[in-house]
């Protein structure tokens, strides 16, 4: 097996995550799909790292993980405060671009 298959898998997961972002209304699930896309990217980075024989790809994946963690913290905090204000976590309810 060629490791390029990891890349195909990564592309597949990324696309599934993207479509999930587009079709789900629950903000938390949308957020999970974003995480899925990030993870797909990480898999690609790790695979590239192996292909090129150096660790820079892994460093990238590492930073992605850290930024993703920060993003999760802020994103979930936003979701919670929006939920508090509107009793709803649906992204469609915030269609007036204001609370």
């Amino acid at each position: 097996m060629n490791p390029v298959n990891y890349l195909y898998l990564s592309a597949l997961l990324f696309t599934i995550g993207g479509v999930g972002v587009l079709i789900r209304r629950n903000a938390i699930v949308v957020f999970m799909c974003v995480e899925l896309m990030l993870n797909a990217c990480n898999l690609a980075f790790v695979t590239f790292s192996r292909m090129h024989g150096n660790l820079d790809g892994q460093i990238f994946a590492f930073f992605t993980m850290m930024v993703a963690a920060a993003e999760v913290v802020i994103g979930l905090a936003i979701i919670v405060s929006v939920f508090r204000a509107r009793r709803s976590a649906s992204v469609d309810d915030a269609s007036l671009l204001k609370l």
Partner: peptide, 17 residues
């Protein structure tokens, strides 16, 4: 995915994942 990281030689990332 963590398992895949391990398989790709990214041991630290696998565990961190």
């Amino acid at each position: 995915l963590a398992v895949f990281y391990l398989a790709n030689g990214a041991y630290f990332l696998g565990i961190a994942q």
